[in-house]
Design a protein around this nucleic acid. Structure first.
Length: 572
RNA sequence: CGGGGUGUAGCGCAGCCCGGUCAGCGCGCCGCGUUUGGGACGCGGAUGUCGGAGGUUCGAAUCCUCUCACCCCGACCA
C-alpha cells in the first residue's frame, strides 16, 4: 500500500482526551478516532491490525475444533428473560424498543443466544461436545468508558461457547480453549499469564483470566503471583497465608477503655498507643443490598469487597455513608467497634480468630477498647476470608511468597456449569435416555482491546513497536527523496519485490521531508523500516532497521527480501 | 449516580474574573518560491452558528438560567 492512497491521519499533538500512552499513540498514529464516549471508528491501520489478530484467533480456534458462526447483535428481550439475567445484568445492558414497542437489547455477550440456538435443536449426547464461536461487535453501556479501546461501550470480541455432556468431557473442552488461548497470544507476540478470577455476574463455578503483565499506568488490575509455584490469581480472588503471624498470647486480659484523643485512623491510633497495626481490628460498616453489616479486619489489611460480597450473597455492596455509621455506632465515624453494636451481622476475618487481646473502637467518641477477644466479648455471625492479599505474604499452595503485578485482561474463560442450560431449559438425552442440561463454558478474547494492550506493553517515547504478527504492515519503505527519480525507482523496485513475495508493505510516497516520514514511521510502529537515501543508494544499497533497535544494516538493492525475512524471523 | 473540570478553526490552546477593535495564537490545510537524512523557511491565503437554547444589557465568547456533550476521581465492570 502507498501512503498517499490510504488514509493515515497522524497527529503531532496529543489529543486531550487520551490519558494512556497506548490510547495516545492509537489516536496520534491515525489508528482510531472517537465518535462518542467509548465508541470508536477503526481507521485503515487499525482495520489491518484487527484483521491480523482475528486471523490468528480464527486459525487457532478452528484448530481447536471450534466452529465459527455469527450471532446477531440485536436480541429480543425475551431470550434474556429466559435465563433470568434480564433482571440482573443491570444498566450495562443497552436496551431499546422498536416501532412496535417491542423490547430489544444490544448484546454484551451471547450465552443466552447460543443456548437458545441449541435448545431444542441439539438433542443427543452423540452430538456433543460442540464449541461455537464468533467474532462480533458487543455493546456494554459502561458506567465510565475510558482508556480508548480498553474500555469502550462498543468493541469487538471473540466469544466461544462449549457444550458438553458431562464434567469429564467439559474438562477436556475447557483445557482445549486454555491451550488455544496460550497459542493465540503467543503468536500475537504477547506473553500472557493465566490467573484465577471471580466469576462475577457470569455465574458458574470457576473462571480464569488471561493477563498481559505491564508496568505502566495501563495495568487495570492487580495480580497476585507466587514466586515459587504456578499459583496466580487476580486481586478479587487471591488468597494467602500469613508470612509472619503475630504471636498468640496465652492469657486473656480484661477489656479496658482507653482515651484516644484525635486518633480515629489506624495510623493515629497505632502511633498513640504504640502498637503494631496488626493488633488493631477495624470495624467497617457496609450496606449489603441496603442492609447494614459490620466487617472486621486487621488494621494492616484491606477489605476484599468481592470476597465479602460473595460471602454475603448480595448483589450490591457499598460502604455505609457516615450518617448510617453514626446511627449504628452512636458515635462519630472513626471509633466503631464490634462490642455493643445493634443487631447486625458481624463478619469477622479469619485472621482475627487467631488474634487475642486486640484493640477495637469503643463506639464512643475518642475512645478505644484494648484486650478485646472474639467469643468472650462479642460474637461473630461468621468467620471468613474477607481481606485482600498483600505482597510478601505466603502462597496458599506452597512455601513461596506472593508478589503483586499489574496486568491487562486480554482473554477470559468461564466454567459456567449448567447455569444457562438449566435455567433456559436446554436439555439433551444421555446414553441412558435421561434428560440433562448441557454443561457449558464461555470464552472471550478482546479483539480490539488486545492490540491496545500490546501497545501499552510495547512502545517507546516515539511510538508503537508492534509485535510483527499483529502489525498493520511488516515493512515500511521510506524514500528520503521520493521526488528524485533514482530514489523513486529504487523504492518502487523494493516495494514490488516485497509485494511479489507476499510481504505486507507500506510505501511512504509522500513528498514530505525526511524528518516527518521518520517520525511518522516511528509513531505507527511498523516492525521493519527500509530507508532509501542518497549516500547508500550511490552504492546501490538501502538501510534496513528494526523498529525496536537502532542497528542499521546496509543491504544491496536486490537482496532486500532475504534480509527482511531474516530480520523478521529474529524479532517478536 | 455522587464529586471535580472542559466545550473558542482539523489538532493543541489563549481570551472569560474586570462585558465594548477579542475572533486570536501555534501546528495543520491551500498557493508560489527557496529548502530537502529526524516534525524546514519566506511571502500570500482559506477556515469559526465562540457546544445549544433562553435571559440581562445600548452592546455578550465574557454575566445569569436551563440544557447537551466530553474528560478526570469514585461507585461498577459478562
Amino acid at each position: 500500500m502507498r501512503w498517499t492512497q490510504t488514509y493515515i491521519p497522524t497527529l503531532r499533538e496529543v489529543p486531550s482526551e487520551a490519558e494512556l500512552i497506548s490510547h495516545q499513540y492509537l489516536l496520534r498514529g491515525g489508528y482510531i478516532r472517537k465518535l462518542a464516549a467509548g465508541v470508536y471508528i477503526y481507521l485503515p491501520l487499525m482495520q489491518r491490525v484487527i484483521e491480523k489478530f482475528s486471523r490468528i484467533v480464527r486459525e487457532e480456534m478452528n484448530r481447536a475444533g471450534a466452529i465459527e458462526i455469527t450471532m446477531p447483535v440485536l436480541h429480543p428481550a425475551e431470550v434474556w428473560q429466559l435465563s433470568g439475567r434480564y433482571n440482573t445484568v443491570g444498566k450495562e445492558q443497552m436496551r431499546l424498543k422498536d416501532r412496535h414497542e417491542h423490547e430489544l437489547v444490544l448484546g454484551g455477550t451471547h450465552e443466552e443466544i447460543v443456548t437458545y440456538l441449541l435448545k431444542g435443536e441439539l438433542k443427543s449426547y452423540k452430538q456433543l461436545p460442540i464449541n461455537l464461536y464468533q467474532i462480533q461487535v458487543k455493546f456494554r453501556d459502561e458506567i465510565r468508558p475510558r482508556f480508548g479501546l480498553m474500555r469502550g461501550r462498543e468493541f469487538i470480541m471473540k466469544d466461544a461457547y462449549t457444550f458438553d455432556a458431562d464434567e469429564k468431557s467439559f474438562d477436556v473442552s475447557y483445557q482445549k480453549m486454555v491451550d488455544a488461548y496460550f497459542a493465540i497470544f503467543k503468536r500475537a507476540g504477547l506473553d500472557t499469564r493465566k490467573v484465577e478470577s471471580d466469576t462475577g455476574a457470569m455465574g458458574g463455578k470457576a473462571a480464569h483470566e488471561f493477563m498481559l503483565i505491564v508496568d505502566t499506568e495501563g495495568g487495570e488490575q492487580n495480580l497476585v503471583f507466587c514466586d515459587r509455584c504456578e499459583y496466580a490469581a487476580n486481586m478479587e480472588k487471591a488468597t494467602f497465608r500469613e508470612a509472619n503471624p503475630p504471636a498468640l498470647e496465652s492469657e486473656l486480659h480484661p477489656v479496658k477503655e482507653v482515651d484516644t484523643p484525635q486518633a480515629s485512623t489506624i495510623e493515629e491510633v497505632t502511633a498513640l498507643l504504640k502498637v503494631e497495626a496488626k493488633r488493631l481490628v477495624k470495624t467497617l460498616i457496609y450496606l449489603g443490598d441496603g442492609k447494614p453489616v459490620a466487617a472486621l479486619i486487621r488494621g494492616d489489611r484491606g477489605l476484599n469487597l468481592t470476597k465479602l460480597k460473595n460471602h454475603l450473597g448480595v448483589n450490591e455492596l457499598e460502604m455505609a455513608p457516615p450518617s448510617i455509621v453514626e446511627k449504628i455506632t452512636k458515635c462519630p465515624v472513626g471509633f466503631a467497634g464490634p462490642i455493643g453494636l445493634p443487631n447486625i451481622p458481624i463478619i469477622v476475618d479469619n485472621e482475627i480468630s487467631r488474634l487475642r487481646n486486640f484493640i477495637t473502637g469503643a463506639n464512643k467518641f475518642e475512645k478505644h477498647l484494648i484486650n478485646v477477644n472474639l467469643g468472650r466479648d462479642f460474637k461473630a455471625t461468621a468467620v471468613a476470608d474477607i481481606v485482600e492479599a498483600q505482597a510478601g505474604e505466603k502462597c496458599p499452595l506452597c512455601e513461596g511468597y506472593l508478589t503483586i503485578k499489574r496486568g491487562i485482561e486480554v482473554g477470559n474463560t468461564f466454567m459456567l456449569g449448567t447455569k444457562y442450560s438449566a435455567s433456559m431449559g436446554a436439555f439433551f438425552l444421555d446414553a441412558e435416555g435421561n434428560e440433562k442440561p448441557f454443561i457449558m463454558g464461555s470464552y472471550g478474547i478482546g479483539i480490539t482491546r488486545t492490540p491496545q494492550a500490546a501497545i501499552e506493553k510495547y512502545h517507546d517515547s516515539k511510538g508503537i513497536i508492534w509485535p510483527k504478527n499483529i502489525a498493520p504492515y511488516l515493512v515500511e519503505i521510506v524514500p528520503v527523496n521520493y521526488e528524485k527519480e533514482e530514489h523513486k525507482k529504487a523504492a518502487e523496485h523494493i516495494y514490488k519485490e516485497l509485494v511479489n513475495n507476499d510481504v505486507d508493505c507500506l510505501l511512504d510516497d509522500r513528498l514530505d521531508r525526511a524528518g516527518v516520514k521518520f517520525n511518522d514511521a516511528d509513531l505507527i510502529g511498523i516492525p521493519v523500516r527500509i530507508t532509501i537515501g542518497e549516500k547508500s543508494l550511490k552504492q546501490r544499497r538501502v538501510e534496513i532497521k528494526y523498529r525496536g533497535s537502532d542497528n542499521v544494516e546496509l543491504v544491496e538493492l536486490d537482496g532486500v527480501v532475504a534480509v527482511v525475512r531474516k530480520l523478521l524471523s529474529q524479532v517478536n
